[in-house]
């Protein structure tokens, strides 16, 4: 009966995952391997194709809007939605402006992604019964880790899917952007390529995300015990899930838990990059929600 309860929890969370994150790992991998049946993603590999990417998104904007109206949240990835709203001015360096606009579009997508993660967190049994301050703390500290984990299925060693899987942006192009833009994604690629060797499926990912959210060691938590109790149940469910989905993969559970340590370092570095950006880019505004999350984080 206990195993049955754990499987029921796994199914419940998987349903919430599908509801909130429709670009699943299965679909992203199908797109990346050319087996999705849809058109191949538009490839951005230089400034010219970045500008063409804006046109590409413009042409496809209507289906995207419908997507939102149906409350089917898109996958977690930096997007290009905001790119279409701004235009290059006649003055200044067009590449600089494009880079900043791309960064701003990533911000917009991140804000939407935070909302999706929040909805997913609320679906974890017992989460909404926690102290409201603790719910805020768990999200504040967990959400960037979740966003980074959810980027992994969209990435391979050569680049990443963005804009709901409609575009593939090359790793070399991202690396070529001016500092610190060009440095920001490289640690995520390095992490993702290693993480992807674990070959988790969407069911596994679901439970891992819930485990990360329910971390009882976040600074400032008021009532740790109920959080730890919830996490323990999800951990049992994850362990069982991995035994079923990867019977031959020894120590996968332990390997996965070790990734949580790497994640914290990536988040610390990411926040540092953002602080650097705010100093260097006078025209840059950080979205209030992202400001809230990153303020006094690490």
């Amino acid at each position: 009966p206990e195993a049955a309860d754990l499987r029921a929890l796994s199914r419940h969370l998987y349903e919430a995952y599908l509801k909130n994150f429709p670009l699943t790992k299965a679909k992203a991998r199908a797109i990346l391997s050319g087996k999705a049946g849809d058109k191949a993603p538009f490839v951005i590999h230089d400034m010219k194709s970045l500008m063409e990417g804006e046109q590409f998104i413009n042409c496809r904007q209507i289906p995207c809007q419908e997507h939102h109206q149906q409350q089917l949240a898109p996958a977690l990835a930096p997007g290009l939605a905001g790119l279409t709203e701004a235009h290059c001015g006649s003055d200044g360096n067009i590449s600089d402006e494009l880079e900043l606009r791309f960064f701003n579009s990533c911000q917009s997508r991140s804000v939407e992604a935070v909302r999706e993660v929040t909805e997913f967190a609320k679906s974890i049994p017992g989460f909404i019964d926690l102290d409201l301050n603790d719910q805020v703390t768990l999200l504040k500290y967990g959400v960037i880790e979740i966003l980074i984990i959810m980027m992994a299925p969209l990435m391979n060693k050569d680049g990443t899917l963005i804009s709901y899987g409609q575009i593939f942006m090359t790793r070399e192009f991202l690396k070529s952007l001016r500092k610190p833009f060009g440095q920001m994604m490289e640690p995520k690629f390095e992490f993702s390529v290693k993480f992807n060797t674990l070959e988790l499926d969407d069911n596994d990912m679901t439970l891992f995300l819930a485990v990360i959210i329910l971390s009882g060691d976040r600074p400032g938590l008021l009532n740790v015990k109920p959080i730890e109790r919830l996490q323990e149940t999800v951990l049992h469910s994850l362990e069982l899930q991995l035994k079923i989905s990867h019977p031959d993969s020894l120590q996968l559970f332990a390997k996965l838990l070790q990734k949580m340590t790497d994640l914290r370092q990536i988040v610390t570095d990411h926040v540092h990059f953002i602080q650097l950006l705010r100093k260097r880019e006078v025209d840059m505004c950080l979205h209030p929600l992202l400001q809230e999350i990153m303020k006094d984080l690490y």
Binding site: E112, T118, L132
Partner: peptide
């Protein structure tokens, strides 16, 4: 904490749409 994280708090309490953000 809630005061310093008004939007997060709002997201937790309501079904905020992306437009509201």
């Amino acid at each position: 904490l809630k005061e310093k994280h008004k939007i997060l708090h709002q997201l937790l309490q309501n079904n905020t749409s992306p437009g509201d953000l």
